[in-house]
Amino acid sequence: MIGLLIAEWRRMVVEAVRYPLDTISGMVTLFMLFVGLFYGARYITQSPVGGGRLDTVVLGYAVWMLMMAATSDMGWQIQNEAQNGTLEQVMLVPWSSRLVFLVRGVMAIAAFLVPCAVIIAGLLAVTHAHFVWTPVALVPMALVLATAWGLGLLVASLGLLIKRVGQMMQIIQFLLLFVIIAPIAVLAGIGWHVVAMLVPLTAQVTLLRDLLNGVSVSHWVWLEALVNFAVTLIAGLALFGGADRLARRRGILGHY
């Protein structure tokens, strides 16, 4: 297991360092996207973005970046590996394919932490915002990422079968933006609680936001976040296993 972690970490770091332009262009794109939205919104509305809570806006963007990376990486990797002709070799290693791609998802986020920190620092600099990170936010942040990996496995499952995840990711990135903004988890009523438990990431994002803002968090939100995390991850693992088996049955693992 340690060997698997080390192998994936080294591969990712080597590729990122050897081809820095890929990493840098990604960082610049994410930075420019926020700056464009930020100044664009301020210019159009002629009023402060985020109702004066710029720190929340930057934090939301940072969480969205991490969620996007965690959700999309496995699917992109499967598409690229199928295109480059290495996917079948990956499927030949004596590890469960679920574990291999989950580890890849985790390592991708680990490798993205430094670029992400640089982007956030840049955003804080241009917006003159600042926020204080509290250790208590680590748990909901971990829940956000673990759930996003579960969602990533769902995307990767489709990637195994159809190999093209680009169109799907364009839709998912807006859905993720929606779950950051929509306050589903704090809506009253059993029906909304059930929705918050089933719509990936809604409760986790609310939990993270409330804890960082010093708002008292109800037990419902914690419960929703935990159930949501468990449901998404288990569904992701189950679906990926099923997709792996289906792809092998159809003989399309190496197809692109």
Partner: peptide, 15 residues
């Protein structure tokens, strides 16, 4: 099992 598959690169070209 070890395998060299036809039509696949079998390797990471950037490494």
């Amino acid at each position: 099992l070890g395998a060299v598959l036809e039509g696949s690169r079998n390797l990471y070209w950037r490494l």
